[in-house]
Design a binder for these strands. Structure first.
Lengths: 220, 220
DNA sequence: GTCTATAATTAGATAGAC
DNA sequence: GTCTATCTAATTATAGAC
């Protein structure tokens, strides 16, 4: 065997960290960026702080994502994936019952809003003004996400089994009612409510189901 | 009379604008700042752009408000005043009927959210992370605003005349359902909904009243 | 793949002429 | 009260050593 010229496990002189592998660094940068973008918005976010929180150097963002914009997109890809997984998990096994399907979708939505408040925060930051990022978000993710909710809600209203809300305003009314409590958790805490408390989450989810779907068939 | 040394109506050489008076400049700066803060958040907002939009110079912000922070506070003072006026106008004459009072409050809230989407946008920007500005907002305005809604909602629930929502989560659930459509109007437009359409506003307000208060006594 | 050094912008704040 | 010019600090992006 030839003598290894470089041992990748040994930091070179002047280096403080050894290589961690591309996937690990990418993941750490996305994790840190999600928190930073959610707290400060796209403009307020600093790539230096993101890199620092991820234990990396600012220049590594250029290497792994090219620009701040692309890093932001990868953050959204990950979180939207989590949202779709949460809804899919909640609706699993309810394919035949439209009301149960919508109820499960609502509970999945609230569950993710509580677990990943960063998604709502970033969406609220971005959707307040027209931008290239908002257009990308709609074309890549939000447009697609809205469709199944629309269909299910339409079927439910035909049966007279849903609140009198047109499906055009349903999206923002439901998302707003479901996610503002968690997106604005720092404000809620000032008001004496702890959105991280599981009991608060339970009562909130129950309230939303009652609000949008009325008392369940079981209770009638 | 002595000869006037300076004629204030004549721009000095090299000046492009004459004096407009303190109040006019302050108002113009606040108007421009509200739009800029709402679109870009506090950090993303540029005092240079604000001044330019107001037809003033960046340095005049220092003169009239001292800092960017103080300018931001004056923006919120103005908008919260508008919100209180809208609710007061809507609830006027309903002091004796608790249900009508809450219904009017909801309609006043939606009316201002539609007319002044900047308020919701700025609140959503700020309430996503702890900051000195959020603390100021709570101490100066939002804490005070929440109290009467809490009281009225409690009375209504005792009578069994309201949706099953605890008053702790009511605030964010109602505000979210009422304002996200307007705060995120650019996104709604991409989805084919125009929140500026009066018909949309009417149906949305009716839906919220039905959602939170159930069918009115008239309809029973 | 990692890191240092730095270029190019832009920000808010400020001093002082008028 | 207005405006120009400038200061200091922070930003993203980039070039090149290792």
């Amino acid at each position: 065997m030839s003598t290894p010229v470089v041992d990748p496990a040994t930091p070179a002189p002047g280096r403080t960290r050894r290589n961690r592998g591309s996937e690990v660094v990418r993941d750490a940068l996305i994790d840190a960026a999600i928190v930073e973008f959610a707290a400060n918005g796209f403009d307020g976010a600093s790539t230096r702080r993101i890199a620092e929180a991820a234990g990396a150097h600012q220049s590594q963002i250029k290497y792994h994502f090219d620009t701040k914009n692309e890093l932001w997109k990868r953050c959204l890809d990950r979180m939207i994936g989590e949202l779709e997984a949460a809804i899919a998990a909640a609706t699993d096994g309810h394919r035949d019952d439209p009301r149960a399907l919508v109820e499960a979708s609502i509970r999945g939505l609230v569950e993710l809003a509580a677990r990943r408040p960063e998604l709502s925060r970033i969406m609220m930051h971005e959707a307040t003004s027209d931008s290239e990022r908002l257009a990308w978000l709609f074309e890549t993710h939000t447009g697609r996400l809205r469709a199944p909710l629309d269909r299910r809600w339409g079927r439910l209203r035909e049966r007279g089994d849903a609140a009198p809300i047109g499906s055009d305003v349903l999206y923002h009314t439901l998302i707003g009612a479901a996610s503002l409590l968690y997106a604005n958790a720092p404000e809620a805490r000032l008001m004496g409510v702890d959105p991280a408390d599981p009991a608060v989450f339970e009562r909130h989810a129950d309230a939303l189901v009652a609000l949008f779907l009325g008392p369940g068939s079981d209770d009638r």
